[in-house]
Design a binder for these strands. Structure first.
Lengths: 157, 157
DNA sequence: AATTAATAAATGACGAGTCATCTATTTTGC
DNA sequence: GCAAAATAGATGACTCGTCATTTATTAATT
């Protein structure tokens, strides 16, 4: 029944890719209703939790993007969901703050995400969720992205 | 220790996203050496296995893209790795074939992928790989992408 | 104080991804 | 045979995602 030594590793690779894409499509389908994308929604959630952080700090917290989220934020500002405030003491920094509309949309994002999490809770038992998280964490150990996950509180211990 | 009912589901969501991104960066780093992207590499692998399939059939087999891979293939043809041949009986169809250079690069892709699979085999036991595949398959059950995975042979049974 | 380093953010360039729409061709149903 | 429906692929528009480079500002070095 064994194909070759790489069979399961390759299957895992494509299953992770497929799961990420599928989940993204679900979320984007819901978010489309309020004119947001999954990446923009992640920014709103982070800015709601940590008002006044800089672009650089935001970048270190996002999972959806590894570099500087300049343009992601640019579109969010353009759409009136957040505003940039140049730091008074060090004008290299730009701090970010959600607008009233941004805060309102953030609330809607939360409820949409919960629909997705309900779905996951329905598919998987608590132990299964935990086991998958543990195994995926092992894969990411030592990578820069692990810092972001840790900062965001997604540590499974 | 429980944060809230959605904590693990949310962690899983972001861990899958992070793992997909991380794996993609690894692969792209390697592939950059031969001027390819991970998506292009997937196309080469599929076209190597199934010579002469149409764009539509290719689209149904790819995990990296859900729609029609018109432009992905466009760039591969532009770079001289494959050629399009209009079907003689039904000129709506375009069939695809790797060029000599395309075949050579496909071989290099295989060996680079194996490096990644070796890494996965080192991180995980056989049972762990299998369990993760089983659980991720459950998430994708009933979704169109499952057909692609099945066609590609990534069924864990 | 002037020059150099370092740092934050913006920008250019490119290739994905996705959805909607358009074009060309073939099938179908009468 | 011909108009309508179906189908394959191309294309437009938009947003990611990533890397490299540039710009502006501050910190460090001499």
């Amino acid at each position: 029944m064994e194909k070759n030594q790489y069979f399961k590793a390759e299957a895992l690779r494509y299953l992770i890719l497929a799961a990420q894409r599928q989940g993204n499509r679900w979320l984007n389908d819901m978010l489309k209703g309020i004119g947001l994308t999954a990446s923009q929604a992640e920014v709103l959630r982070v800015l709601h939790e940590r008002r006044g952080i800089s672009l650089k700090e935001l970048g270190k917290l996002l999972i959806c993007e590894s570099g500087s989220p300049s343009r992601l934020v640019e579109r969010i500002v353009r759409d009136g969901l957040a505003e940039k405030i140049v730091h008074t003491k060090d004008s290299r920094y730009v701090t970010l703050q959600l607008t009233q509309i941004g805060e309102e949309k953030e609330q809607l994002v939360e409820s949409m995400e919960q629909q997705m999490y309900n779905r996951l809770n329905h598919i998987y038992s608590d132990k299964e969720l935990e086991f998958m998280c543990t195994l995926l964490s092992r894969f990411l150990e030592g990578q820069p992205i692990s810092e972001a996950l840790k900062e965001r509180g997604f540590e499974i211990k």
